Simulated scan of single mutants.
Amino acid sequence: MYWNEEQQSGGSNISPMEFVERSLEEIRFWSRIMKEHSLFLRLGFRCEDTQLIAEANQFFHIFERIEQQSHAFTNQTDPMTIRRFNSEVQVAAANIYAFKRKVLGLILSCQLPGANNFPLLVDHISREANYFRKRLIELNEGKLVPLADAIIKENVFFLRIMADHAKFIGHLLDPSERKLVDIARNFSNDFDELLFQARDLDGMRPYSQTVPLLDQFLDQNRVSVVSLRDFKKTARDLIEECKIKSIIHPLLADHVYREADHFLTIIDMFDAHLTGTNV
Rank of each mutant, 00 (worst) to 15 (best):
W3C: 06
N4F: 05
Q8K: 14
Q8C: 01
G10W: 08
N13Y: 10
N13G: 05
P16Y: 12
M17L: 09
E18Y: 04
F19G: 03
R22I: 03
R22S: 07
R22P: 00
S23E: 10
F29S: 05
W30D: 06
W30Y: 10
S31Y: 03
S31A: 15
I33R: 08
I33C: 03
L39Q: 13
F40D: 08
L41T: 09
R42G: 03
L43S: 10
G44Q: 08
G44T: 10
E48A: 07
D49E: 13
T50M: 06
E55T: 11
A56H: 07
N57K: 15
N57Y: 01
Q58C: 02
Q58L: 05
H61V: 02
I62Q: 13
Q69P: 00
S70G: 07
H71V: 09
A72Q: 15
F73I: 02
F73A: 07
T74Y: 06
T77H: 04
I82P: 03
R84M: 02
F85D: 08
N86P: 02
A93S: 14
N95C: 02
I96Q: 15
F99R: 08
F99W: 09
R101M: 11
G105V: 04
I107S: 09
L108H: 05
L108D: 13
F118R: 11
F118I: 00
L120Q: 12
L121G: 01
V122A: 06
I125F: 07
R127M: 04
R127P: 00
A129K: 02
F132W: 04
R133M: 12
R135V: 09
E141A: 08
G142L: 05
L144D: 01
A148I: 00
I151A: 05
K153I: 01
E154C: 02
N155I: 08
F157K: 12
F158Q: 10
L159M: 09
M162Y: 01
H171D: 07
H171P: 00
L172S: 05
S176L: 12
K179M: 03
L180N: 10
N186L: 14
N186C: 04
N186W: 01
N186R: 15
F187C: 05
S188C: 04
N189V: 09
F191R: 06
F191C: 06
D192A: 12
Q197K: 15
D200S: 11
L201C: 07
L201W: 02
M204N: 07
Y207E: 15
Y207A: 15
S208M: 06
P212M: 14
L214R: 10
Q216L: 13
F217A: 06
N221S: 14
S224C: 10
S224P: 00
V226G: 03
D230N: 15
D230A: 09
F231R: 10
A235Y: 01
R236W: 05
D237A: 08
I239G: 02
E241A: 15
K243G: 05
K243L: 12
K245G: 00
K245V: 00
I247D: 05
I248Q: 08
P250H: 13
L252N: 04
A253K: 07
A253V: 09
D254M: 06
E259H: 09
E259P: 01
D261T: 09
H262C: 03
F263R: 09
T265S: 10
T265M: 07
F270W: 02
D271Q: 15
H273W: 03
T277D: 08
N278S: 14
